[in-house]
Amino acid sequence: MDWNVISKSIPLYWDAMLLTLKIGWIGVALATLIGLVSAVVIHFRIPVLSVIFKIYIEIFRNTPLLIQLFFLYFALPKIGIKISAEVCGWLGLGLLGGSYMSEAFRSGIEAIDIVQRESALSLGMTDFQVMIHVILPQALSYSTPAFVANIIFLLKETSVFSAISLMDLMFRAKDLIGLYYNTAEYLVLLVVFYLIILLPVSILGTVLERRLRYASFGT
Protein backbone atom coordinates (compact mmCIF):
# COMPACT_ATOMS: atom_id res chain seq x y z
CA MET A 1 0.00 0.00 0.00
CA ASP A 2 1.61 3.24 -1.14
CA TRP A 3 0.35 6.10 1.02
CA ASN A 4 1.86 8.65 -1.27
CA VAL A 5 -0.37 7.51 -4.10
CA ILE A 6 -3.38 7.60 -1.81
CA SER A 7 -2.82 11.09 -0.46
CA LYS A 8 -2.16 12.40 -3.96
CA SER A 9 -5.37 11.03 -5.40
CA ILE A 10 -7.71 12.03 -2.58
CA PRO A 11 -8.54 15.43 -4.17
CA LEU A 12 -9.38 13.69 -7.46
CA TYR A 13 -11.71 11.29 -5.69
CA TRP A 14 -13.21 14.15 -3.68
CA ASP A 15 -14.26 15.98 -6.85
CA ALA A 16 -15.68 12.78 -8.28
CA MET A 17 -17.61 12.16 -5.07
CA LEU A 18 -19.13 15.64 -5.20
CA LEU A 19 -20.40 14.91 -8.71
CA THR A 20 -21.79 11.55 -7.62
CA LEU A 21 -23.48 13.18 -4.63
CA LYS A 22 -24.94 16.02 -6.68
CA ILE A 23 -26.44 13.81 -9.38
CA GLY A 24 -27.43 11.19 -6.84
CA TRP A 25 -29.39 13.54 -4.61
CA ILE A 26 -31.05 15.42 -7.47
CA GLY A 27 -32.11 11.99 -8.73
CA VAL A 28 -33.42 11.01 -5.29
CA ALA A 29 -35.39 14.26 -5.00
CA LEU A 30 -36.90 13.77 -8.44
CA ALA A 31 -37.69 10.15 -7.62
CA THR A 32 -39.44 11.14 -4.40
CA LEU A 33 -41.53 13.73 -6.23
CA ILE A 34 -42.50 11.34 -9.03
CA GLY A 35 -43.15 8.59 -6.50
CA LEU A 36 -45.46 10.75 -4.34
CA VAL A 37 -47.44 12.12 -7.28
CA SER A 38 -47.88 8.73 -8.91
CA ALA A 39 -48.79 7.04 -5.62
CA VAL A 40 -51.54 9.61 -4.96
CA VAL A 41 -52.75 9.48 -8.58
CA ILE A 42 -52.95 5.69 -8.55
CA HIS A 43 -54.57 5.67 -5.11
CA PHE A 44 -57.39 7.97 -6.27
CA ARG A 45 -57.69 6.01 -9.55
CA ILE A 46 -57.65 9.24 -11.55
CA PRO A 47 -58.67 8.15 -15.07
CA VAL A 48 -56.07 8.11 -17.88
CA LEU A 49 -53.31 9.48 -15.60
CA SER A 50 -53.31 6.46 -13.33
CA VAL A 51 -53.05 4.11 -16.31
CA ILE A 52 -50.12 6.11 -17.67
CA PHE A 53 -48.36 6.00 -14.31
CA LYS A 54 -48.98 2.27 -13.98
CA ILE A 55 -47.43 1.59 -17.39
CA TYR A 56 -44.51 3.85 -16.50
CA ILE A 57 -43.91 1.95 -13.24
CA GLU A 58 -43.96 -1.45 -14.97
CA ILE A 59 -41.54 -0.30 -17.67
CA PHE A 60 -39.01 1.28 -15.35
CA ARG A 61 -39.15 -1.35 -12.64
CA ASN A 62 -38.40 -4.09 -15.13
CA THR A 63 -35.41 -2.63 -16.97
CA PRO A 64 -31.90 -1.96 -15.67
CA LEU A 65 -30.70 1.62 -15.13
CA LEU A 66 -27.72 1.00 -17.38
CA ILE A 67 -30.02 0.20 -20.31
CA GLN A 68 -32.20 3.22 -19.51
CA LEU A 69 -29.15 5.47 -19.51
CA PHE A 70 -27.88 4.03 -22.79
CA PHE A 71 -31.29 4.68 -24.28
CA LEU A 72 -31.45 8.27 -22.98
CA TYR A 73 -27.87 9.13 -23.83
CA PHE A 74 -27.08 7.24 -27.05
CA ALA A 75 -30.44 6.44 -28.64
CA LEU A 76 -32.55 9.58 -28.14
CA PRO A 77 -30.11 11.94 -29.95
CA LYS A 78 -30.74 9.88 -33.11
CA ILE A 79 -34.35 11.07 -33.16
CA GLY A 80 -33.32 14.62 -32.36
CA ILE A 81 -33.55 14.70 -28.55
CA LYS A 82 -30.15 15.66 -27.17
CA ILE A 83 -29.66 15.51 -23.39
CA SER A 84 -26.36 16.17 -21.62
CA ALA A 85 -24.74 13.34 -19.69
CA GLU A 86 -25.44 14.97 -16.35
CA VAL A 87 -29.13 15.52 -17.05
CA CYS A 88 -29.33 11.94 -18.37
CA GLY A 89 -27.86 10.83 -15.07
CA TRP A 90 -30.36 12.42 -12.74
CA LEU A 91 -33.27 12.03 -15.12
CA GLY A 92 -32.58 8.30 -15.46
CA LEU A 93 -32.13 7.93 -11.73
CA GLY A 94 -35.29 9.94 -11.06
CA LEU A 95 -37.38 7.90 -13.46
CA LEU A 96 -36.08 4.58 -12.16
CA GLY A 97 -36.41 5.71 -8.55
CA GLY A 98 -39.87 7.16 -9.10
CA SER A 99 -41.21 3.73 -9.98
CA TYR A 100 -39.71 2.22 -6.81
CA MET A 101 -40.76 5.13 -4.57
CA SER A 102 -44.28 4.97 -5.94
CA GLU A 103 -44.63 1.36 -4.77
CA ALA A 104 -43.20 2.28 -1.37
CA PHE A 105 -45.58 5.20 -0.83
CA ARG A 106 -48.57 3.31 -2.18
CA SER A 107 -48.12 0.48 0.28
CA GLY A 108 -47.89 3.14 3.01
CA ILE A 109 -51.13 4.79 1.90
CA GLU A 110 -52.87 1.44 1.68
CA ALA A 111 -51.73 0.55 5.19
CA ILE A 112 -53.75 3.42 6.69
CA ASP A 113 -57.01 2.25 8.16
CA ILE A 114 -60.11 3.34 6.24
CA VAL A 115 -61.55 4.64 9.54
CA GLN A 116 -58.99 7.44 9.45
CA ARG A 117 -60.29 8.64 6.12
CA GLU A 118 -63.93 8.29 7.04
CA SER A 119 -63.48 10.15 10.33
CA ALA A 120 -61.65 12.98 8.62
CA LEU A 121 -64.33 13.23 5.93
CA SER A 122 -67.08 13.27 8.53
CA LEU A 123 -65.32 16.19 10.24
CA GLY A 124 -65.91 18.11 7.03
CA MET A 125 -62.44 17.92 5.52
CA THR A 126 -62.11 17.84 1.76
CA ASP A 127 -60.48 14.91 -0.05
CA PHE A 128 -57.34 16.98 -0.57
CA GLN A 129 -57.16 18.02 3.11
CA VAL A 130 -57.62 14.43 4.20
CA MET A 131 -54.73 13.39 2.00
CA ILE A 132 -52.36 16.15 3.12
CA HIS A 133 -53.17 16.28 6.84
CA VAL A 134 -54.33 12.81 7.75
CA ILE A 135 -53.27 10.11 5.31
CA LEU A 136 -49.87 11.21 4.02
CA PRO A 137 -48.19 11.98 7.38
CA GLN A 138 -49.07 8.52 8.64
CA ALA A 139 -48.38 6.82 5.32
CA LEU A 140 -44.95 8.43 5.08
CA SER A 141 -43.87 7.08 8.43
CA TYR A 142 -45.08 3.64 7.38
CA SER A 143 -43.09 3.94 4.17
CA THR A 144 -39.91 5.16 5.84
CA PRO A 145 -38.03 1.83 5.84
CA ALA A 146 -38.78 1.24 2.16
CA PHE A 147 -38.06 4.90 1.41
CA VAL A 148 -34.60 4.79 3.00
CA ALA A 149 -33.83 1.45 1.35
CA ASN A 150 -34.73 3.05 -1.98
CA ILE A 151 -32.45 6.04 -1.33
CA ILE A 152 -29.55 3.69 -0.62
CA PHE A 153 -30.42 1.67 -3.71
CA LEU A 154 -30.48 4.81 -5.86
CA LEU A 155 -27.21 6.18 -4.51
CA LYS A 156 -25.63 2.80 -5.22
CA GLU A 157 -27.02 2.81 -8.72
CA THR A 158 -25.08 6.02 -9.45
CA SER A 159 -22.07 3.76 -9.96
CA VAL A 160 -23.23 3.00 -13.51
CA PHE A 161 -22.93 6.64 -14.58
CA SER A 162 -19.38 6.06 -15.74
CA ALA A 163 -20.89 4.18 -18.70
CA ILE A 164 -22.18 7.46 -20.12
CA SER A 165 -18.79 9.08 -19.42
CA LEU A 166 -19.74 11.06 -16.33
CA MET A 167 -16.62 11.56 -14.21
CA ASP A 168 -17.96 9.88 -11.10
CA LEU A 169 -16.12 7.71 -8.56
CA MET A 170 -16.20 4.58 -10.72
CA PHE A 171 -14.93 6.51 -13.73
CA ARG A 172 -12.13 8.05 -11.66
CA ALA A 173 -11.06 4.70 -10.23
CA LYS A 174 -11.06 2.98 -13.60
CA ASP A 175 -9.18 5.87 -15.15
CA LEU A 176 -6.46 5.96 -12.48
CA ILE A 177 -6.04 2.18 -12.47
CA GLY A 178 -5.57 2.31 -16.22
CA LEU A 179 -3.03 5.15 -15.97
CA TYR A 180 -0.86 4.13 -13.03
CA TYR A 181 -1.71 0.51 -12.31
CA ASN A 182 -1.79 1.01 -8.50
CA THR A 183 -4.90 -1.17 -8.41
CA ALA A 184 -5.03 -1.88 -4.69
CA GLU A 185 -4.71 1.75 -3.59
CA TYR A 186 -7.29 3.06 -6.02
CA LEU A 187 -9.77 0.34 -5.14
CA VAL A 188 -9.36 1.01 -1.42
CA LEU A 189 -10.06 4.69 -2.05
CA LEU A 190 -13.09 3.75 -4.11
CA VAL A 191 -14.50 1.70 -1.25
CA VAL A 192 -13.73 4.41 1.31
CA PHE A 193 -15.45 7.12 -0.71
CA TYR A 194 -18.54 5.01 -1.30
CA LEU A 195 -18.64 4.41 2.45
CA ILE A 196 -18.51 8.18 3.01
CA ILE A 197 -21.53 8.56 0.75
CA LEU A 198 -23.60 5.62 1.93
CA LEU A 199 -22.77 4.93 5.57
CA PRO A 200 -24.45 8.13 6.92
CA VAL A 201 -27.62 7.36 4.97
CA SER A 202 -27.65 3.80 6.25
CA ILE A 203 -27.17 4.91 9.87
CA LEU A 204 -29.75 7.69 9.53
CA GLY A 205 -32.16 5.13 8.14
CA THR A 206 -31.76 2.87 11.16
CA VAL A 207 -32.31 5.80 13.54
CA LEU A 208 -35.32 7.11 11.62
CA GLU A 209 -36.92 3.70 11.48
CA ARG A 210 -36.75 3.48 15.26
CA ARG A 211 -38.14 6.96 15.83
CA LEU A 212 -40.95 6.85 13.29
CA ARG A 213 -42.66 3.80 14.68
CA TYR A 214 -45.39 6.05 16.09
CA ALA A 215 -47.52 5.33 13.06
CA SER A 216 -48.27 1.91 14.46
CA PHE A 217 -49.12 3.41 17.84
CA GLY A 218 -52.26 1.92 19.34
CA THR A 219 -52.59 -0.90 16.86
Binding site: I177, A184, V191, S202
Partner: peptide, 23 residues
Protein backbone atom coordinates in the same frame (compact mmCIF):
# COMPACT_ATOMS: atom_id res chain seq x y z
CA UNK B 1 -25.14 -8.09 5.15
CA UNK B 2 -24.12 -4.46 5.71
CA UNK B 3 -21.18 -4.75 3.32
CA UNK B 4 -23.42 -6.10 0.60
CA UNK B 5 -26.12 -3.51 1.33
CA UNK B 6 -23.78 -0.55 1.23
CA UNK B 7 -21.30 -1.36 -1.53
CA UNK B 8 -22.56 -0.85 -5.07
CA UNK B 9 -22.40 -4.06 -7.11
CA UNK B 10 -20.11 -2.27 -9.55
CA UNK B 11 -17.58 -1.70 -6.78
CA UNK B 12 -17.77 -5.36 -5.77
CA UNK B 13 -17.23 -6.35 -9.40
CA UNK B 14 -14.17 -4.11 -9.60
CA UNK B 15 -12.84 -5.44 -6.31
CA UNK B 16 -13.09 -9.03 -7.42
CA UNK B 17 -12.13 -8.61 -11.06
CA UNK B 18 -9.31 -6.06 -10.73
CA UNK B 19 -8.52 -6.19 -7.03
CA UNK B 20 -8.25 -9.86 -6.11
CA UNK B 21 -6.53 -10.77 -9.35
CA UNK B 22 -3.86 -8.16 -8.69
CA UNK B 23 -3.43 -8.85 -5.00
Amino acid sequence: LEIVRIMPQMVLLFLVFFGTTRV
